[in-house]
Every structure is written in C-alpha cells, then in structure tokens.
C-alpha cells in the first residue's frame, strides 16, 4: 500500500469510568493518535449492538466499547 492506513475509530465510553479515564489521559498529557471520536454514554450497557453496526455502516474502521 502506498498510503498509510489511517483508520476511523468510534468509541462509546461510559461516563463513569472510560470517559473519565479519557479525561485523565488528558490531565496526564498522554499522547495518542487523533483518529478516534469518543461518544459519551451513561453506561457501556447503553450501547445497543445496533449502534456498532451503524458505525461500521457509516464508514468506521473500528468501534471500541469501553466501560
């Protein structure tokens, strides 16, 4: 491949743990690639499998459910 693969990743993050961990990563100034988009939910249990399918359908290369 001539072009480097730059995946689009959608993240569903639980407000109480993963989302706050992502905040803490910021407070700690940890650096990570800018190609993920975090969507806050109140619990990873809120993530309907349908959401994941919709994300792939919309062109996501990866979906992460963190909670």
């Amino acid at each position: 491949m001539s072009e480097e693969f730059d995946p689009k990743i959608v993240v569903f993050a639980c407000n109480w743990c993963a989302y706050s961990a992502a905040d803490l990563a910021g407070v700690s100034r940890l650096q990570y690639p800018p190609n993920l988009r975090i969507i806050r939910v109140m619990c990873s249990g809120r993530v309907n499998p349908n959401f994941i399918l919709k994300a792939f359908e919309g062109g996501a290369d990866g979906v992460m459910v963190a909670g």
């Binding site: 689009k8 959608v10 988009r37 939910v41 109140m42 994300a55 919309g58 996501a60």
Partner: peptide, 17 residues
C-alpha cells in the same frame, strides 16, 4: 433513556463519520 435516546446517540455516530 431520556437524553440518550437511540436517535440522540446515532446522530453523533453519523456526525462523527
């Protein structure tokens, strides 16, 4: 769930991509 209805979450997925 109020405030996190399917449409309210999915519109973000769509907008993200």
């Amino acid at each position: 769930v109020f405030h996190f209805e399917d449409a309210e979450v999915l519109t973000m997925v769509e907008a993200a991509l």
